[in-house]
Amino acid sequence: MSKGKKTLMYGFLILTSAVSIFPLYYMFASATNKSVDVVRGRLLPGTELFNNFKALCANQNLGRAMWNSFRNAVILTLIAMLVCSIAGYGFEIYHDKGKDAVMNVLLLAMMLPFVAIMIPLFKMFSQMKMVNSWAAFMLPTISTPFLIMMFRQAARSFPHDIIEAARIDGLTELGIFFRMFVPTMKSTYGAAVTVTFMNAWNNYLWPKVIFQTEESTTMPMLVANLMGGYTVDYGMLMVGVLICTLPTAIIFFCLQKSFTEGITGSVK
């Protein structure tokens, strides 16, 4: 490759990376500055982080929102992993015409926009007196065609010999799934956990509909509230944004390797 081309390529990558990183740096820097300095466009880290954090805690019930978001996202992710991975495994390992047809029908659910089913869901849960319950938040998003497909794809590369051998050894079908399949599919689970946790944590529309009391406020709702007042304290806002972003960023960094590997398995 010529030198000019190489420079162009690296230049493009560096520029794109800089643009990708900058708003995040801006969030960091702003979280440590006074609102007036943020507005003036100050980009250097300041010393106001703790004060902004104190202001946020005085203004909003941060602990409660964090706890709500964590509880919702963790429980949802755990249940979704179990339900969707066993379904994907079932579709692939025991596949026949009937199951393939069912899978094709389920895939249609990918095309249903959430706004379209939101109102009937809300009515359904209010009839069951489940508005504000975390079960109502979770139930519609536990099982997704995307996850089922991902695990079905992963099960395709799972050797049938192992299953046959395990059967001869007397393992039950459920035992084969838990003792043979689950441990070998770590990167698929890693990718699935990343996607599911992020979606659950970041979800804004459905919580806004189903959580109608202040007690059930989630982190994204709390952050949105910070913009609501007449004057906006940008330093405080950015601390909120920062805290809301940290858990998903940490999950992403911890599972990054398996995330890319798992996605690779799913697009094969």
């Binding site: 339900v83 969707c84 066993i86 379904a87 495994y89 079932g90 579709f91 390992i93 025991y94 596949h95 026949d96 199951k99 069912v102 389920l106 659910a109 249903l112 379209a116 089913i117 109102i119 009937p120 869901l121 009515k123 359904m124 139930l139 519609p140 536990i142 099982s143 997704t144 065609p145 089922i148 079908e173 459920l174 799934f177």
Partner: peptide, 28 residues
């Protein structure tokens, strides 16, 4: 037996999608 096991494995996920996606769509 294996066929039934397969159905049992995919049933919870399929039911959740039917009850919380397809049925609400019909309701809408």
């Amino acid at each position: 037996k294996h066929n039934l096991t397969g159905w049992a494995f995919l049933l919870p996920a399929a039911l959740l999608i039917v009850v919380f996606s397809f049925y609400p769509m019909f309701q809408a």
